[in-house]
Simulated assay, not measured.
Amino acid sequence: MMLRILFSAPTALWEEYRTPLRQALAEAGIAAEITTATEAPDEIDYVVFAPRGGLSDFSPFTRAKAVLSLWAGVETVTGNPTLTQPLCRMVDAGLEEGMVEWVTGQVLRHHLGLDRYICATGPHWDQRVPPLARDRTVAVLGLGELGWVSARALAALRFRVLGWSRTPRALPGIECRHGTDGLRPVLEAAEILVLLLPRTPETEGLLDAERLSWLPEGAVLLNPGRGALIDEAAVLAALDAGRLGHATLDVFQTEPLPPDHPFWQHPRVTVTPHVASETRPASASRVIAENVRRAEAGEALLFRVDRARGY
């Protein structure tokens, strides 16, 4: 049977996915017609979705067996009352590898104090020797797929890694804490803090002035997760007060980050423009094809979103 798949995403993404998605479906043995047109929605079997593609009402897609997101973050769509079909977020090898590279690169940059040399404008014979990784504590808030692989990579470099999640986790090589009671001791020990939580009502503004005050003086904040996780004004105040030593931020409440935002000019802020990790069309297409194959075979979908938790 020929399946009909709607690709609902910005035009630029269709140009990137057109060939890899067709190839991945063919390799999975799936006969499918991919369309970008929303006519005859009751004939669509699957929706491949990214925000800003024009689709906001899922109710006409009465035959659709799943909505397959191209993004890891699904907070923009989980609350949509018209979305009654199973929703799957994107987790692919390219996304994980990119995040691990960004996180480990930034952690090592701050652990080794490389800015002292990279940013020096003249002779700078500074022989301060950094501690070994085993003597530095890095905390990772969020132990989903991206948080876990990043924490594992840091532990492999012999950092002492603390992990925190809303619910209990047990991960080899990681000292795991959870829940409200577990957060403060993790923050109090975090010389370098990495935020990789999903955006949910419970995590919005999680890192506010009070919780920033729990960090060791001079701690470094890395946020490649979600811009809404931090109180931006509180972060700036903590930097100015010396509570934070540096903030390296990849995600923001408003993107692109406005040119007049104080993060751009602050001497202890590094801005990277939401490039910590990006979904790669080739590997993501294989995840989409595998979920279509699973649904057609009556198997459990990969990375299905728990609506109650929001991820």
Rank of each mutant, 00 (worst) to 15 (best):
A66V: 11
Q253I: 08
G122A: 13
V186D: 14
L55Q: 06
G54M: 05
L6V: 10
A276Q: 09
L239T: 04
P258I: 08
T62R: 09
L95V: 12
V235D: 14
G163H: 00
D231W: 04
L236E: 04
V287Q: 08
E299H: 13
P262T: 00
E97I: 01
L195E: 05
L83I: 09
E16V: 15
A151F: 05
F263V: 00
R304P: 02
W125A: 06
P81K: 12
E96Q: 14
L215Q: 12
I192D: 09
R134Q: 14
S285T: 01
L114I: 08
R304C: 10
E33R: 10
G53F: 10
V287K: 13
E191V: 01
L114V: 04
E75Q: 01
E232K: 05
W125E: 11
A151S: 07
P267E: 11
P131N: 03
M90V: 04
L154I: 02
T84H: 14
A153S: 10
E290F: 02
E278W: 15
P86E: 06
E15P: 12
R158F: 02
E296Q: 02
T279F: 00
E97T: 10
T82A: 05
M90S: 14
S165F: 02
L95T: 04
S283M: 07
W148Y: 09
G79T: 02
E75G: 07
G113P: 01
T272M: 03
C119L: 15
L108N: 04
L302H: 06
L13A: 06
E39W: 10
Q106F: 01
I192L: 11
W164K: 07
V91G: 01
P168Y: 10
D208S: 02
W164H: 05
Y311R: 14
G105F: 09
L196C: 02
I288W: 00
L21F: 12
L162Q: 04
T38H: 03
R169G: 09
G94I: 01
A237L: 00
T121N: 08
R158V: 01
A32M: 03
G205R: 05
D45H: 06
T180F: 01
G79P: 02
L13M: 15
L55N: 14
D306A: 08
P60S: 06
G29W: 07
T11R: 15
A50V: 14
H111V: 14
L197G: 00
R307K: 15
E43K: 06
M90W: 11
H124G: 13
R152N: 03
A37N: 10
T270S: 14
V138L: 15
C176S: 04
E188W: 12
V271F: 04
A139Q: 01
